[in-house]
């Protein structure tokens, strides 16, 4: 498996007020841990984007990872109606200028409905521009049914959206997400905490390696687990290479800003 380049789709930096046992405050500490486990690149968000506000956190993220070529930025969104973030074209122009290539939605923390009523043509634009939108597994609270109903409804309303369910959680939730993988070709899974023994191999055989993205959910979770799991998964080298990083690279290259 020499030459496989790992690109973690789900890491954050900052000082979250609670809930993370050992936070990772800086880009420098993140890069050191990536070096330790053998990860080349990471798509990064910032704790302030989630815990305080995207108004603050989006900019802080850009400042914190400035000059770090191995780190790619992502921003969080808010409903257009409150006009807290740049509107329409201005938002995508700002993303381009900041080098940001992906978006996050935190509807639970930011208290909004992630649906067409709220986001209307904005998410049509996100879909058209092929910008990956990441949603954490707790988007609907701790109840998995609420999150998966949210994801199911969102995809029904925006079937062309590039949607990534992140931080899956240790309980295999295949009974929820497999119908979505079947139905929506641009629905992806971050494999962080998808620890199910034999799960990766089965997903690859059923849906193809291109639907899975390597992620760690660092620093809430250790990087070593998914790194070892993917390195030793019983899948082809081609599939491993795709999941480890090539799928995410392809998605980010497709982005039109």
């Amino acid at each position: 498996m020499a030459g496989i380049s790992y690109f973690d789709c789900n890491v954050s930096i900052g000082r979250p007020k609670s809930g993370v046992y050992r936070p990772c405050p800086t880009a420098g500490e993140l890069l050191a841990e990536m070096d330790w486990v053998g990860v080349d690149q990471a798509l990064v968000h910032h704790a302030l984007m989630r815990g305080q506000s995207p108004v603050v956190g989006n900019q802080v993220l850009v400042e914190e990872i400035a000059g770090e070529e191995r780190l790619v930025g992502s921003w969080a969104i808010l409903p257009p109606q409150t006009r807290e973030l740049p509107q329409g074209e201005d938002f995508f122009t700002a993303m381009a200028q900041a080098g940001v290539r992906a978006l996050w939605a935190f509807p639970m923390e930011h208290r909004y409905l992630l649906n067409r009523l709220t986001f209307g043509p904005f998410l049509d634009q996100v879909a058209e521009r092929r910008i990956p939108l990441f949603i954490p597994r707790n988007a609907g609270g701790t109840d998995p049914v609420a999150t998966w109903q949210l994801v199911s409804q969102l995809l029904a309303e925006y079937p062309k959206l590039t949607l990534v369910l992140a931080a899956h959680g240790p309980w295999g939730e295949d009974r929820y997400f497999r119908p979505l993988l079947e139905r929506y070709p641009r629905f992806y899974l971050d494999i962080s905490r998808y620890e199910l023994d034999g799960g990766l191999g089965e997903l690859v055989s059923l849906y193809g390696a291109e639907r899975l993205l390597y992620g760690s959910n660092f620093p809430a979770n250790a990087m070593g687990g998914p790194r070892m799991m993917l390195a030793r998964a019983e899948i082809s080298e081609e599939a491993r290479r795709a999941i480890a990083g090539d799928n995410l690279r392809r998605l980010l290259q497709e982005v039109q800003l």
Binding site: E195, L196, G198, A222, G224, G225, M228, M229, A233
Partner: peptide, 10 residues
Amino acid sequence: WFDPHYAIGC
């Protein structure tokens, strides 16, 4: 439940 390699990696 869990792939031992995940736990081993940790």
